[in-house]
């Protein structure tokens, strides 16, 4: 694998000093980037340069850098997590870009995700949705043996498909309505598939949807964009299940 070096690229980045400040785009030059480097490593290098020039480095969220914590969240060249399928921003590599290209980087845009600084957004709204009902109400201790309730292979797999959500918010970012339906559906559907979660299924679906609405996310119009940009490929079939759960709950009220 010969390492190809991008001699020069340009990045056009959203800069905004804090929640209240007005933002603007700025374009920077970055030199000598290995195509084997990750996108965030490219930003590290740019930041190193900015710091040395006495400028404020670009703030962006990241932590695990292996696609599982859901912290990284960049809208790159018009797509959530950039131009590749089934990955997070931290898994995006520079081999997806060309010499001399201008790469546009924006934060997740949604009223429910205000910008904290530059490319960093506040996703507390997701926390609130989870707190509204994204759990099974059991205390520690006093639970039955793990094998007491058999769960079919298919059900367990489907629950796991949904549970794979990393809470990154790409679905909201990419949705033309800034809807959080895929995120909510992932949790509701996971627990609806398991006997443990079914018990309070109705309450959960209603509470999480109500919270989502309250926090200013848009509604779902089933464009399916979220599913294609979701780094974990969470299927919108789970949204259908959420709708089912929700309608069932509402009609039996």
């Amino acid at each position: 694998m010969a390492d190809v070096i991008l001699k020069k690229i340009y990045v056009k980045v959203w800069r905004q000093n804090n929640v209240r400040a007005k933002g603007r785009f700025e374009t920077y030059e970055v030199e000598n980037i290995s195509q084997g480097s990750s996108f965030l490593e490219m930003l590290d290098i740019l930041n190193d340069k900015l710091i040395r020039e006495g400028k404020d480095p670009i703030a962006f969220d990241h932590d695990c850098r292996e696609g599982i914590c859901g912290t990284c969240s960049l809208y790159v060249n018009g797509r959530a997590h950039g131009p590749d399928r089934d990955i997070t921003t931290c898994q995006l590599h520079m081999r997806k870009f060309n010499e001399g290209e201008t790469i546009t980087i924006e934060p997740w845009r949604a009223g429910a995700f205000p910008v904290i600084k530059d490319l960093m957004v506040d996703r507390t709204a997701f926390e609130k949705i989870q707190q509204a009902g994204g759990f099974v109400s059991v205390n520690t201790g006093g639970v039955p043996d793990g094998n007491a309730i058999p769960i079919g292979y298919e059900d367990a797999e489907e629950a796991m498909d949904a549970a794979a959500c990393i809470g990154c918010g790409a679905c909201v970012a990419t949705c033309k309505n800034s809807s959080a339906m895929l995120f909510v559906a992932a949790k509701v559907s996971q627990l609806a598939k398991l006997p443990q979660g079914k018990v309070e299924g109705k309450r959960r679906a209603k509470a999480m949807v109500a919270k989502m609405d309250e926090l200013g996310f848009g509604g779902c119009t089933n464009t399916g964009a979220c599913e294609l940009e979701c780094p974990k490929g969470i299927s919108i079939s789970h949204i259908a299940r959420l709708n089912r759960e929700y309608l069932k709950a509402k009609f039996s009220d």
Binding site: V136, T140, V143, G146, G152, A156, Q190, K193
Partner: peptide, 23 residues
């Protein structure tokens, strides 16, 4: 250690299962 598994199952952790439904 066995209690941990029971606890997590009760919370809805989707551990891998055999076709018969056991862990």
């Amino acid at each position: 250690s066995p209690n941990i598994i029971d606890q997590c199952v009760a919370q809805g952790v989707p551990f891998a299962r055999e076709y018969g439904g056991t862990l």
